[in-house]
């Protein structure tokens, strides 16, 4: 079975975290001025930028009278990975991730409010160290909030894997080394506020007996991320406001 020694006998992972610990998340809203909303998010060594344009009038071919059309594009900088990438976008993997982003984010956006309109969400990976999709979803959520687009709830994504030692244990927030070790990787995008799951993707095989364990650890990761994102949003909104301002307003 692969991924046997992802967890040391002391219960530490290759990067020194415990099994249930996330990587350090640092983020900032409103990094750019031209887009309607933008955000930068660092999850360990994975660094992602997201920009949101819209809602604006949809092009004729895309326009839908039911609700807003969410248009996502995921691209990776050519220098973001260890080996240089030849193309930043357009390959199968980034097209697939674009579709997944769209699915996860559409679940959170109140689409019915803007018929015949379009929202463009662009995610740019500057540095990839595993979990780029998760970081992309988290950054896009912040960018959507920065753009002032009504959401049902925060949508957060987190991945989880499994360590097969003496006692099987789920690992939350999988970095590149653990992804490359060949074990199972379960990616979950959920709306922690409502408890529902917007997207689920699993690679490699996993016995059903262990599924619940891995799934719940990923969902717990999403809940932890939501707390961090929520604090970032509150800090961003409070920025520049002093007590005096609140009294006079």
């Amino acid at each position: 079975m692969p991924a046997a020694d992802l967890l040391s006998s002391q219960g530490l992972r290759l990067d020194g975290r415990r099994a249930n610990e996330l990587r350090r998340i640092r983020c900032k809203l409103g990094v750019f001025t031209q887009p309607d909303g933008s955000a930068y998010l660092e999850q360990g060594n994975t660094k992602v930028l997201a920009a949101v344009y819209g809602p604006h009038q949809a092009s004729k071919s895309k326009s839908s009278s039911d609700g807003v059309v969410v248009n996502c594009q995921y691209s990776m900088a050519t220098f973001s990975t260890g080996e240089r990438k030849n193309r930043p976008r357009g390959d199968r993997k980034s097209q697939e991730i674009s579709l997944h982003l769209r699915q996860a984010l559409t679940a959170a956006i109140k689409t019915e409010l803007y018929p015949r309109s379009q929202i463009d969400i662009y995610v740019e990976v500057l540095q990839a160290d595993g979990g780029t999709f998760c970081a992309g979803v988290n950054a896009a959520t912040l960018a959507l909030i920065d753009a002032g687009i009504p959401l049902r709830a925060y949508v957060c994504a987190c991945s989880a894997s499994m360590a097969w030692g003496a006692r099987p244990q789920p690992l939350v927030d999988v970095p590149h080394v653990e992804e490359a070790a060949g074990g199972v990787v379960l990616t979950v995008a959920s709306l922690p506020n409502t408890g529902s799951t917007a997207l689920l993707e699993m690679s490699h095989k996993l016995h059903m007996d262990y599924f619940k364990m891995v799934f719940s650890s990923a969902v717990q990761g999403c809940r932890d991320i939501e707390v961090i994102l929520d604090r970032a949003v509150r800090d961003h909104l409070a920025e520049g406001w002093t007590e005096q301002d609140t009294v006079t307003v």
């Binding site: 750019f32 031209q34 887009p35 933008s38 930028l49 997201a50 920009a51 344009y53 248009n71 594009q73 691209s75 900088a77 050519t78 930043p88 976008r89 357009g90 463009d120 662009y122 740019e124």
Partner: peptide, 16 residues
């Protein structure tokens, strides 16, 4: 040299 115009800059840069 390789230049990539990210769609973050403007939606016109989307795709190619």
């Amino acid at each position: 040299f390789f230049v990539d115009c990210s769609a973050n800059a403007t939606p016109e840069f989307e795709g190619r």
